[in-house]
Design a protein around this nucleic acid. Structure first.
Lengths: 120, 120
DNA sequence: CTGTATCCCAAGTGATACTG
DNA sequence: CAGTATCACTTGGGATACAG
């Protein structure tokens, strides 16, 4: 029996999903929420360099896809926390593997870049 | 001792690497080359919907980063094949995990989308 | 604190046509 | 077969200011 979904097929919905989870900041947010829920500002501090606008967009997208839950606890000042859903948690391992690959293979990639440049 | 590289740091080179391997078509090319080397046209046929221009750009980027080797065997008509390097092969497992997650979780994501829409 | 609202820009992508 | 060359276009992303 054939696979139900195949990213190699141009109209397969899995391409949409793959594109979503491959969005620039997804891996950062999911990684940051791995251990515990975080509030908006905590997330922003954790993911250095992200702007409020982009963080908001990323969180909305993840919420839309059911990867992150937004929990509004109300009060003044507002208290909102974000946590991984079970679905989001299931993505943690694959994404962490990619993130770790990036962190551990910087030297090899840089070496390859230099080699390529020297060859012309 | 602290990690040598940390994607959460805004200037860390691992962010560049992560961005590169997160490029739209990287996962497709790496996946396609998992089992055997492929020629340009074979790759293009395999990854349905990719254009020659984008495939070329993706292959050049992967070559630059040392993930893919371009082997020109000459002749007429030209015979060029692309194969994963050991470095590229080491990326295969992480990327396949992400691709498989996308392929297996389409229903859950679609359900979350509907739920979100119904809530408003 | 938790966001929105604008505006702007560069990069990425895609369609099409062409070449060695 | 294995690409290049253009061009048009969209989208994502960043800066900044503001609001409930």
């Amino acid at each position: 029996m054939a696979k139900a979904y195949d990213v190699m097929a141009p109209t397969c919905p899995s391409r949409v999903v793959l594109h979503r989870i491959g969005a620039r900041w997804t891996v950062f947010v999911v990684t940051a929420l791995a251990d515990r829920p975080l509030r908006f500002t905590e997330l922003k501090k954790h993911i250095e360099g992200i702007t409020a606008k982009v963080l908001t967009e990323t969180l909305r997208a993840l919420e839309y896809d059911g990867l992150v839950a937004r929990v509004d606890k109300g009060g003044h000042p507002p208290y909102v926390e974000y946590r991984l859903t079970p679905l989001g948690r299931s993505l943690l391992e694959p994404l962490s593997a990619v993130r770790e690959w990036a962190e551990t293979h910087v030297p090899q990639v840089e070496r390859a870049n230099r080699a390529y440049d020297e060859r012309g």
